[in-house]
Design a protein around this nucleic acid. Structure first.
Length: 234
DNA sequence: AAAAGGTTCAACCGCATCCAA
DNA sequence: CTTGGATGCGGTTGAACCTTT
C-alpha cells in the first residue's frame, strides 16, 4: 500500500511546520506517537532527528565561532567522539553539527600535515588533539549515562544549561587559557535563535505575530504559519 | 560559461541503552 | 527477571552548494 509507505529524504516546509506543531502539542519525547498522529509518513526516529537537528528552537545557525571550534577540539581530545556529550557543552549546537565540524577539521588537519611535511616520518607534536584522542582509551570509554545526564535539549536547553564555569570544571584537563564563553558572547555571525523563549502553548493561538516568536528567522515558517489555522485544520 | 573537484550539511542506518509491562 | 518497544547515539552517505580551473 503506497499510503503506508515511509517517506525518506529531505523534509518539506510543510512537513516541518506540521512536525513543529505536533511537537509543541505533545512534547519532544513520544516520537513514534507524534509520527503517527501528525500524519507525517515519517518514522519517529526521523521526526526526532529533524526536530533535534533543525527545528528545535534555540539552535544556532551559521558558522561556529573560534571559541566553539576550540572547545570542540579540546572536548574531543578529552572525551573522544562523544558528540552528544560535547554538544551539551555548546548550547545551540547539535551533535550532528559538531560531528560534521570535526570531520571537516580532521580532514583539513590531515591535508595541512601532508603539505607541511612531504616525506618526513618523524613528526609531530602538533595536532595532538586528533591523534591522541582517537587513541586515548579513556576517551573511548563509554560515558556513563545516568538519568540526570540527559541530552541538552531534553533538559530544556539553556534554562538548565551549563555555565562556562561548569564547563571548564568539566574540562579540568585544560587550563582556561584564553578561551572565552561560547554563548552569551556577542558574535554577530551567530544568530542565537530567540526561539528559546518560545512558549509552547502560544501555538494554540498563533497568529502572524506569534509565529515570529517561534520561527523568527526561518521565513518559510512565517509564510506557512501566516496562513492561519486553516493550514492545520485542513 | 562550463566542468571538475572539494566541502558542507541534512538525513539514514544499525547498534546500544532505557524503561515500562 | 525478562522482554519488547521507544529513544538516543555515532558512523556514514549523498545531494546541494561552493570554489577553482
Amino acid at each position: 500500500m503506497a499510503q503506508d509507505e515511509v517517506r525518506k529524504g529531505p523534509w518539506t516546509e510543510h512537513e516541518d511546520v506540521q512536525l513543529a506543531f505536533y511537537v509543541n502539542l505533545f512534547g519532544d519525547r513520544r516520537w513514534d506517537f507524534i509520527a503517527k498522529v501528525s500524519g507525517l509518513k515519517r518514522t519517529g526516529k526521523s521526526c526526532r532527528l529533524r526536530w533535534v537537528n533543525y527545528l528545535h528552537p534555540g539552535l544556532k545557525r551559521g558558522k561556529m565561532t573560534a571559541q566553539e571550534e576550540r572547545l570542540v577540539v579540546q572536548l574531543q581530545s578529552k572525551w573522544g567522539n562523544r558528540w552528544s556529550r560535547i554538544a551539551r557543552k555548546l548550547p545551540g549546537r547539535t551533535d550532528n553539527e559538531i560531528k560534521n565540524y570535526w570531520r571537516t577539521y580532521t580532514r583539513k588537519e590531515a591535508q595541512e600535515k601532508k603539505k607541511s611535511m612531504p616525506a618526513s616520518p618523524s613528526h609531530s607534536n602538533c595536532s595532538s588533539s586528533i591523534s591522541s584522542a582517537s587513541l586515548d582509551p579513556a576517551a573511548d570509554s563509554k560515558p556513563i549515562m545516568n538519568t540526570t545526564e540527559r541530552n541538552f535539549f531534553d533538559t530544556g536547553g539553556l534554562e538548565e544549561g551549563y555555565s562556562m564555569d561548569e564547563i571548564w570544571n568539566d574540562i579540568d584537563l585544560f587550563p582556561e587559557e584564553n578561551i572565552k564563553p561560547v554563548y552569551g558572547g556577542c558574535n554577530d555571525e551567530i544568530l542565537a535563535s530567540p526561539i528559546w523563549d518560545y512558549r509552547p502553548d502560544s501555538l494554540w493561538t498563533m497568529d502572524q505575530e506569534d509565529s515570529k516568536l517561534i520561527f523568527p528567522t526561518s521565513e518559510p515558517f512565517h509564510s506557512l504559519f501566516g496562513q492561519g489555522s486553516t493550514f492545520f485544520t485542513g
